[in-house]
């Protein structure tokens, strides 16, 4: 077995294990940690496919930022672990239909294109070929309108998030740094000259 194949199977095994643990673990924080491991392994698979930009972007964006915020939420929620299993049987039929549909869809998509993934010839590039450069060139020439559109949608999301949490002026006392900077000594300190009184 070639070394690369061994690495692929190892990473995939970790990926499958981590993904299973995400849904089977009781503690939601542990589940989120396994999700991070799953992202990591997925980026390892992408590195094997020589898609280094996608792999690093996955770690940078999902592991470095998204999952951090996700962990914040999961940790701050007051989750009662004992009550988590309530309604398991009630929701099982609906959930199984949804998951079966998803599996079928993925099988249809992946079965056609990627069957025999390991045998398929990934275009071998020389070591100086820059994946990120090629991706950037495509994004800003051929796909520039979808790209700009996506950025506008993200901007709308940012503005919406701010608008949802902004509830008028805060009533708390807070200092304004610009006012602080412009304060002069004579605004705050008054030097008084009081003549000494004569002793009686």
């Amino acid at each position: 077995m070639e070394f690369k194949t061994f690495v692929f199977y190892f990473i995939s095994a970790v990926l499958v294990f981590a993904s299973l643990r995400v849904v089977t673990l009781k503690n939601p924080v542990h589940a989120a940690l396994h999700l991070i491991l799953a992202f990591f392994s997925a980026s390892g698979v992408w590195i094997l496919l020589q898609a280094e930009f996608l792999a690093i972007a996955l770690v940078l964006v999902y592991v470095g930022a998204v999952m951090v915020l996700f962990l914040f939420v999961v940790m701050l929620l007051d989750i009662n672990v004992d009550r988590l299993r309530e309604g398991f049987w009630k929701y099982l039929p609906l959930a199984s239909i949804v998951s079966l549909l998803m599996v079928a869809e993925m099988a249809l998509v992946l079965g056609g294109t990627y069957s025999g993934l390991l045998e398929s010839d990934i275009p071998q590039q020389d070591s100086q070929y820059s994946n990120s450069k090629a991706l950037g060139r495509l994004l800003f020439t051929e796909y520039v309108y979808p790209f700009e559109l996506a950025s506008v949608i993200l901007l709308v999301g940012v503005v919406a998030a701010v608008a949802l949490t902004l509830r008028g002026k805060t009533k708390s006392k807070s200092v304004s740094p610009s006012e602080q900077v412009f304060v002069k000594a004579k605004d705050r300190v008054r030097v008084l000259k009081i003549p000494a009184e004569a002793r009686e």
Binding site: E52, F53, I56, A57, L60, Q128, S132
Partner: peptide, 9 residues
């Protein structure tokens, strides 16, 4: 090639 991205990640 993408060493700076690697460092950031």
């Amino acid at each position: 090639n993408a060493s700076l991205l690697f460092i950031m990640a």
